[in-house]
Design a protein around this nucleic acid. Structure first.
Lengths: 199, 199
DNA sequence: TCCACCATGTAACTGGTTACATGATTAC
DNA sequence: GTAATCATGTAACCAGTTACATGGTGGA
């Protein structure tokens, strides 16, 4: 009897709660306002998800009587929840993960630093890089083999994919360099300086 | 009483069926084998989806007694289905489409050429391009404004997104050039094109 | 005969969406 | 007192997943 792993939404919630104990309302706002907007929102998704996490013992919600405001249920990770989050973050990256879509991997990356430290983030990037390379190459091979028999639109759509994966591959190199740089400088605190921007 | 628009899967099925009348089995194989793998597969999704499309009158399934094989139900588009597909393909591209994810847009692009001709595909690319530019710029602005207060991982994740959108923007330029080239050279397609002349 | 494969379906479960309900607090 | 906002929930519905069922066909 397999306990279904938490959905991506579940892991996103775990990650955010780990970062800072939060109420459902807080989390909704985060999803709605920050660049994580592609992840769902709306009470009908989040409150039930939090209940599921609590039922699995990954999270513990305590009603706080915030002076002067309506009671809010503050969730924080349990030890089990923390372990589950770590397990998800360190799960080996496979071809199928890349294929299924890169957004879950980016979410994992975004949480790795604060949950497991910069070294783990670098390790993640290296794995990601290693998975991207053959994937892009495979697409390229498929493209070369089938280009002649595909309509132009199909060929171009594939090329778009190849370019996207290549771009991400290049990004992993850049990101690793950034981490190394931030480590060699002041230790422990990831450098917030250097707002160069991409490119 | 709004009939819910077909889901993305529904449109994907319409597009594939338009290209060539197909059975559920054919469609499953397409999803499983071609680079469209990210779209679902598995009978439990496809057969019910086909039934829904039929119930909406977008598609008509006829049992063919393919000599020597088990009967297969061949679906083909109805006029209504064709119209619905065209409506989806030509729906204006908005910021929210880009945000929600680019894969639906790529699917639309891939079907546009065969359904509506090369001119429509070019028009789609131009719209797509026009939507990508401000989106990437907006991300960039957000990044610059918040980089200082974000952990390195968050900053890098955002930068990855910016790079991805830039790469896609560049791709739209390339794709438009490719279409122009294919049109000016040997016209393979019977000219549905030339509506407004390639600007 | 039995197995492998083609092809279609179905049932149980899960999770997300939309829309609404509820109640507490602050501002007027 | 009433409106706006904070905050949590709930119910109905819908689509997708997994896993299984069905049955027809060809080949050993």
């Amino acid at each position: 009897m397999r306990l279904k792993d938490s959905s991506v939404l579940g892991y996103a919630l775990l990650g955010l709660i780990q970062r800072k104990p939060s109420s459902g309302y807080d989390l909704r706002k985060l999803f709605a306002e920050t660049a994580m907007g592609n992840y769902s929102s709306s009470p009908g998704a989040i409150y039930p998800a939090l209940e599921r996490l609590q039922a699995q013992g990954l999270v513990l919600g305590i009603v706080k009587d915030m002076a002067g405001l309506r009671r809010r249920r503050l969730y924080r990770l349990t030890a089990k929840g923390s372990a589950e989050l770590s397990k998800w973050l360190t799960r080996p990256i496979e071809r199928s993960d890349v294929k299924r879509g890169v957004s879950e991997l980016m979410l994992r990356f975004a949480f790795t630093e604060q949950a497991l430290g910069a070294a783990a983030a670098i390790a993640f990037l290296q794995q990601f890089r290693a998975a991207l390379k053959p994937y892009a190459a495979g697409l390229q091979v498929y493209l070369r083999a089938n280009a002649a028999s595909m309509p132009l639109s199909g060929r171009l759509a594939l090329e778009c994919g190849v370019r996207g994966y290549r771009s991400m591959y290049a990004w992993t190199g850049y990101a690793i360099r950034q981490y190394r740089q931030s480590q060699s400088g002041t230790d422990s605190r990831p450098a917030k300086t250097r707002k160069g921007g991409p490119r």
